[in-house]
Every structure is written in structure tokens, then in C-alpha cells.
């Protein structure tokens, strides 16, 4: 039990360090920039308004924006103001493009989409990849193991956007079976709508699954291969345990542990990939929101979405790490 509390304490500490570093970088970045985001925004506003705003109006907008971004007071004051807005009031101000809708409302609408896509594709890719990797590592002498590993090698280093484009070309012209952009009508949740959502999410999900699949195959293959050489596996084999049982109960059980840690660690890059994929397929999640924020110069929305990304990744990583003792009884006992 003491062991577990120790583990818990360490993980919680890491969680806060992640949040602290992430949020601090976000806070400092615009302040290190040579150009002022408010100036940028005002320029854009004047450009799109078609006529020059009067000096008085500009000063007024500048003051309002300054308050919103918390650019008044000393750097320390600004920092605490920022932390308070992120963690206490969850207030990122109104969206500048969809004024006066608050940013948090837009994020709340988009978050379940991203969450659903990530959850389904990450779990599918993780389970499939580890299963294939396990088989490839356990039977590493067989021909099919080499084929499976080569598949992993071919898939793993390829970026998300390449997969997205290849799938787009493939499904747009050769087999027009799935829609290339996401179109689901709003309305009550019916069976038909659920089918629609799955049908429309297929290609973005497939992109994510493919990339993460390669990663998991390679990781698990080398882990299974080295676990197989352990003394306890040899002992089991000499004892006459069936190979299938050795694979699942002896090798997989041990080799899966680093894969859980590695999933927690790579969640940040998986999330980044999900954002790219969403943007390319117009999937209505956080990534899409980010993209429209960029094209509209909507800094509030951009900061809101990016802050929420970092918080979401930190929480998911923590969740995986807290589930870890379920798979590794050595942490609970001892």
C-alpha cells in the first residue's frame, strides 16, 4: 500500500509539472514575440472593416483586449491572472469571430467529438498493434512474423498527413465508399444518426489507427522478443506449458507493461496527429476549431483550444498512469 501511495504521489506531481510547463510556455510565447498580438489583431480588424477606425475607437478596443489577455500589471500579476482564468474560472473570453459566443461554449461542443475519435482510434490501434506485435515477436523465426514486422516498419515512420492524403486519393477515386469530409446534420440522436457519425468518421479514424498501429507493432515486437528469452519463460516451456498459454500468460502479461507507459507518453503526439487529421478531414473537433480560429485570427479561441489540448493530454496521461497498477500488481502489493 505504501508503494502505491508513493507511486500515486509521484504521478500527481508529474501531472502538475506537465500542466505548469505547458501553461507557462503558452503564457510566455506571445510575450517573447517581437510583434504584439493586439497590434496584429487591430491591423486585421482595420483591414477587414474597410475603413480606418478612429484613434479613440482603437484605444478603446486596445484597452478591452488588454484586459481580456491580461496584459496589464507586472509579469507576475499577469501570470497569476492567466492561471486563474485557466483553472478557476475556465474563462477564455468571447470568441472574436463568433462574437459574443464564449470560447468555452464552442470548446464544449467540439470536445466530445475529438474525445470520441481519439478514444476509439487509440484503443483500437493499441489493441490491434500489440496483438500483432506479440505474435510477430513470439514467433520471430516464422516467415509471417517478418512480414508483419515489415508492415510495421513501412507504416510507422509515415506522417499523419501523408496517410490522410493517400486515403483521400484512394477512397475518392478508386473506391468512393466513404465521405471525404465530415457531414452530419445536427438534431436528436437517433439510430440513423449514430450510423451516420460512424460512417463519416471512418476515414479520419482509419488514418489515426494506421499510424498508431505501426508504432505499437514495432514496440511490442521487440518487447515480446526480449521477454521470450527470460528465465521464467524458459522454465514454463520446460515444464510443458502450451506455447499459446506461454504467449498470453507469460510473455504478453509482462511485455504489455512498458507498452502502457509508452502509450501514456506518446499521447501528446497522438493528440497532435489527431488535430492534423481533423483539420484535413474537416472533422468537427478541437482541431477544426483551431483551424477556423487561425484563419479568422480569433486569438481567444486559439488560446482556449490550445490550453484545453494541453490540459486534456495531461489528464489522459494521468488517467492511464493511475490505471497502471491494475495491470502491474507489483505496484499494489510488496
Amino acid at each position: 500500500m505504501k508503494n502505491f501511495l508513493n507511486y500515486l504521489w509521484q504521478r500527481l506531481l508529474t501531472f502538475f509539472v506537465v500542466l505548469f510547463i505547458g501553461i507557462s510556455v503558452l503564457f510566455l510565447l506571445p510575450r517573447l514575440m517581437p510583434s504584439d498580438p493586439i497590434d496584429n489583431y487591430l491591423q486585421r480588424l482595420q483591414g477587414s472593416a474597410g475603413q480606418a477606425l478612429t484613434g479613440e475607437q482603437v484605444a478603446e478596443i486596445r484597452k478591452a483586449l488588454g484586459e481580456m489577455y491580461g496584459i496589464q500589471g507586472s509579469l507576475i500579476d499577469q501570470y497569476f491572472g492567466y492561471l486563474k482564468r485557466v483553472f478557476v474560472s475556465h474563462d477564455f473570453g468571447p470568441s472574436l469571430a463568433a462574437y459574443p459566443k464564449p470560447v468555452s461554449e464552442l470548446i464544449n461542443l467540439a470536445l466530445p467529438w475529438t474525445f470520441g475519435l481519439m478514444l476509439v482510434s487509440t484503443i483500437t490501434a493499441w489493441l490491434l498493434g500489440n496483438l500483432v506485435g506479440l505474435v510477430a515477436g513470439f514467433f520471430h523465426n516464422r516467415k509471417f512474423a517478418t512480414v508483419l514486422e515489415t508492415l510495421g516498419i513501412l507504416i510507422y515512420p509515415i506522417p499523419y498527413y501523408i496517410f490522410a492524403f493517400v486515403l483521400i486519393i484512394f477512397f475518392a477515386f478508386l473506391i468512393p465508399a466513404f465521405p471525404l469530409t465530415f457531414v452530419v446534420m445536427p438534431g436528436p440522436v437517433t439510430f440513423q444518426k449514430i450510423v451516420d457519425i460512424i460512417y463519416n468518421s471512418f476515414l479520419p479514424a482509419l488514418t489515426l489507427i494506421l499510424v498508431n498501429f505501426g508504432w505499437n507493432v514495432l514496440g511490442m515486437k521487440s518487447l515480446a522478443y526480449s521477454t521470450k528469452e527470460e528465465g521464467y519463460v524458459l522454465y514454463a516451456r520446460l515444464k510443458g506449458v502450451k506455447p499459446r498459454r506461454i504467449m498470453y500468460n507469460y510473455v504478453a502479461r509482462n511485455a504489455i507493461l512498458p507498452q502502457i507507459t509508452s502509450l501514456a507518453l506518446s499521447l501528446g503526439s497522438i493528440f497532435g496527429g489527431a488535430l492534423i487529421t481533423e483539420m484535413l478531414f474537416s472533422y468537427p473537433g478541437i482541431g477544426m476549431l483551431m483551424r477556423s480560429a487561425i484563419s479568422n485570427g480569433d486569438y481567444n479561441l486559439l488560446y482556449g483550444t490550445i490550453t484545453i489540448t494541453i490540459v486534456a493530454v495531461a489528464i489522459s496521461t494521468l488517467a492511464i498512469d493511475l490505471l497502471y497498477p491494475l495491470f502491474d500488481p507489483r505496484i499494489r502489493h510488496r
Binding site: 510565447l29 514575440m33 501528446g268 503526439s269 497532435g272 486569438y299 489540448t309 494541453i310
Partner: peptide
């Protein structure tokens, strides 16, 4: 570990949009 977990991609997006 914190730097591994924090997604770099969104932060690069911020950087680029700040300088248009």
C-alpha cells in the same frame, strides 16, 4: 516526461499564428 507529454504541435501553431 513533461516535455514528452506536452504536445508540441499546438504550440507551434500558436507561434506561427502570432507572427501571421
Amino acid at each position: 516526461d513533461s516535455f514528452i507529454v506536452i504536445p508540441a504541435f499546438p504550440i507551434l501553431i500558436i507561434l506561427n499564428s502570432l507572427v501571421k
